[in-house]
Simulated assay, not measured.
Amino acid sequence: MFDSLMQLFRDLAGASEDNQVFSDSDLRVATAALLVHLMSIDGVIDDKENEEIRKVLQQHYALSDEETSELIDFASQCDEESVDLFKFTSVLKRELDEEGRIKIIEMMWQLVFADGEIHEFEDNLVWRVSELLGVSRRDRIRMRQHVRSQLEMDDDG
């Protein structure tokens, strides 16, 4: 009943789900919203972070440039409207197995390292999301070290 009523309001507003590529309950939106939040948490969004979020989302979800832009725009809007991280982490925890949740943490570390600095707010956010996703401290640190070593190998090679 409630869903039917909500659909009626969306249709009247011209925002039918048929026209919308992404939805609030989409794990891609949840992932992107966490990454958008992470990218902006230190108060500075630079070109490297913008490039990295696009690269990470395109690779992980096999998106086109246009789909990636739409996803980031929609996720940014969802992040602005959200009062907490639980909205996003609950979707991911429900939809992903342990390996998938660890991959989200890896993606977050990739974004953290994109600008060459680890801000304490970024580090804290990765820790909080890990806790909400049920990712162990050991796996969170392992992903941090993995991403760092990948970057060092890329710099050497």
Rank of each mutant, 00 (worst) to 15 (best):
Q58C: 08
L38I: 04
E98L: 03
E49Q: 11
L125K: 14
L35Y: 12
S25G: 08
I102S: 03
F22D: 03
D42K: 13
F86T: 10
R128T: 02
V83P: 04
E51G: 09
L35S: 12
L35H: 10
E120N: 11
D79F: 15
A75T: 07
S76A: 14
V135Y: 07
L35A: 13
D18Y: 11
E152K: 13
L111S: 03
L133E: 03
A75S: 12
E67G: 00
R138N: 05
A62D: 11
E99L: 05
F113A: 07
A13R: 14
E66G: 00
S149Y: 04
W127C: 05
N19G: 14
S64P: 01
A30Y: 03
R138F: 02
S4R: 10
W127T: 14
Q7D: 13
D154S: 09
K55F: 13
L8C: 06
Q145G: 14
D115Y: 06
L125N: 10
E81Q: 14
N124T: 12
V126A: 08
V29T: 05
V56G: 11
A62F: 03
T31K: 00
A75R: 08
D115S: 01
L35I: 15
L35N: 11
E99P: 00
R101N: 06
I53L: 07
K55I: 08
R140H: 01
L96P: 04
D26K: 03
S82F: 08
D115A: 05
Q77E: 15
V83R: 13
R148L: 14
F86S: 10
